[in-house]
Design a binder for these strands. Structure first.
Lengths: 255, 255
DNA sequence: ATTGACCCTGACGTTACGTAAAGGTGTATA
DNA sequence: TATACACCTTTACGTAACGTCAGGGTCAAT
C-alpha cells in the first residue's frame, strides 16, 4: 500500500507540512516519487514514522531521533521496551503533578499550608525525570548505574499514588466509623459519613455503584467472619454497626 | 519573603532567562525592582508562577495563559479542578500510548498483526476525545449498566462459599498476571491463563459471558483510572498488559 | 475541457526561549 | 580599601519545528 502526503499525514495525525519537513531534513524520505514529483510512502516509511512519533512524544529532538534510527545497533523491539519504560516514567510524573494540584487545591481552601518549595516540587521532579529520559546514557555515565537504578526504584514507589489515595480513604472511613461507633447511632451524622466514605472507597473497585450491591456487601460483612474480624479489631460490634449504617444509608438514597 | 531572579528560577525549576522573558512579555512582572534595577518577586508572584507552570504543562500558549489569568472571572480553585481533569485525561492518553507500544512490540515479534491505522491510533488526540465519550459513558452503559446491575444482584445472592471461591480466584488471577507481566508477552501462555482466570472470575459477577463484553471491560481497565490504579499497584503497566492479554484471548475465542 | 482537490517548491513568520556580549552591583575577604 | 566573584542588567541574534502564505503544476471525475 502506498500513501500520498495527505493520506499518510491524516493517518498519523500530523500535518502534510510536517512530512515535507521530515523529508527536507532527511528524517523520513518517501519510498519514491512519481514523475510529477509527488511523494509516495511505503510500509517501511509508515513504520519509521511510527518510530519517529514515539520518540517525538518523549520530547527527543528530531536530530537525535535521526541519529538513533541510523545507528547500526538499532534494535526496534529493544527500543520499544525503552519507550514503554519512558512512558511509564512520564505517567509517574503526571501522578506527581496531579498530587500537586490536589495539594494546591487543599491549600487554597485553607485546609493545609504549602511552602514555596512544595509549590514547585512536581515541576522540578519533572526536570529530573526528563533529564534521565535523555535515554539514560549521560546520567548513567555521570552517576553510575547504581545510583540511577536507585533513583528509578524510588520513582517506582511514588507510582502508588492512586493506591495511596485509596488506602487513605479507607483509613479515613475506619476512623470515622470508630468515632461513630461511640455514639451508638448508625443513623447519626458520623455513621452516615462513614457509610458515604465506604461508598467512595468501594468505587475504586466497582465499575458502577448500586445501592443494592452496597447493601449486599454490608450484609456480607457480618456473615463473613473475616470481615467481621477485620472491622471488629478495635471494638467488637463494629462490623454490625457498619452494616446498619450502610443499610440506612442505601435506604435513604434517591433513585 | 522576596526572591531574586536566580532564587525563584531555581525554586521553580525554570531558567533565569525564562523569568526575564515572562517579565518582558508582561506575563509575570516582579513585585518591585531595587535601585539598581534588580527584579524582586513576592509571594503573589510565586503563586502566579505556579499557575503559569500548570497551564504551560498542559501545553497552553503563554499568550493564552496571560488572557486567562487576566480574566475578571478567574477563579483559582475552579481552574485547579480543571487542571486536575486535564491531567487525568493526559494520563489516559499516556495509557493509550503505552498500550500502543506494547501492541507494536507484539506485532514486531509476529504475535499479532497491526493495521497501518492502528499503528497511529494512540497519537491522535482528537480521536481520543471521541473515545472518551465512547468508553466513558456509552461503553459503561453498554457493558456496564445492565449487566453490572444484574451482576450486583448475583453478588447479593452469593453464599459465603461462593464469595471465598471468587476471592481466591481473583488472587490466583493476579498472581498469574504478575508472573505473566514479567515475560512481557500478553500473548504468552501465562498471560493467556491470566485472561482465562479473569474470565472465570468475571463469571461470578456476570450473568452470562460474552467475549465482546469481556473485551469491553478490558478496554475500560485502561481508560478508567480507578481500574488502572488497582491493577498497577505492584507494577505500572499491568492494567494495559491485562487488557492486551484479554483482547488477544477474546480474539482467539471461537464465537 | 473544466472543475476541484490535491501536489510541488520557496520563503518568511512564530513560539519560547538559549546563548553570548558588554557592562553594572553586592558583599566577603585580603 | 582593593579585589575577587557571583550575581544582576539590557540588547540582540540564534534555534527548533513547524505554520502559513504565494505562485504554480497535476490528476481523476464529470
Amino acid at each position: 500500500m502506498e500513501y500520498t502526503v495527505k493520506e499518510l499525514s491524516e493517518m498519523a495525525g500530523v500535518s502534510p507540512r510536517t512530512l515535507r519537513y521530515y523529508d527536507q531534513i532527511g528524517l523520513l524520505k518517501p519510498a519514491r516519487t512519481n514523475p510529477a514529483g509527488y511523494r509516495l510512502y511505503g510500509p517501511e516509511e509508515v513504520d519509521r514514522l511510527q518510530q519517529i512519533l514515539f520518540y517525538r512524544e518523549l520530547g527527543v529532538r528530531l536530530g537525535e531521533i535521526q541519529e538513533i534510527l541510523a545507528a547500526p545497533t538499532f534494535n526496534a523491539v529493544k527500543v520499544l521496551h525503552q519507550h514503554r519504560e519512558k512512558l511509564l516514567a512520564k505517567r509517574r510524573q503526571l501522578d506527581r503533578l496531579i498530587a500537586n494540584v490536589e495539594k494546591t487545591i487543599a491549600a487554597k481552601e485553607g485546609r493545609i499550608k504549602m511552602t514555596d518549595q512544595e509549590k514547585f516540587e512536581a515541576f522540578k521532579e519533572k526536570l529530573i525525570a526528563e533529564n534521565e529520559g535523555k535515554y539514560g546514557k549521560e546520567a548513567r555515565q555521570k552517576y553510575g548505574n547504581d545510583s540511577v537504578d536507585e533513583a528509578n526504584e524510588k520513582l517506582m514507589k511514588m507510582t502508588k499514588e492512586d493506591y495511596d489515595r485509596m488506602t487513605s480513604l479507607e483509613k479515613e472511613m475506619r476512623e470515622t466509623l470508630a468515632e461513630a461507633f461511640k455514639t451508638g447511632d448508625p443513623a447519626g451524622k458520623e455513621a452516615q459519613r462513614a457509610a458515604h466514605l465506604h461508598r467512595q472507597w468501594l468505587s475504586y473497585f466497582w465499575p458502577r455503584y448500586s445501592k443494592e450491591a452496597h447493601a449486599g456487601l454490608a450484609r456480607m460483612y457480618v456473615d463473613d467472619e473475616r470481615f467481621t474480624a477485620y472491622y471488629d479489631q478495635e471494638q467488637p460490634g463494629t462490623a454490625a454497626f457498619l452494616r446498619d449504617a450502610i443499610l440506612i444509608y442505601t435506604r435513604n438514597l434517591e433513585e
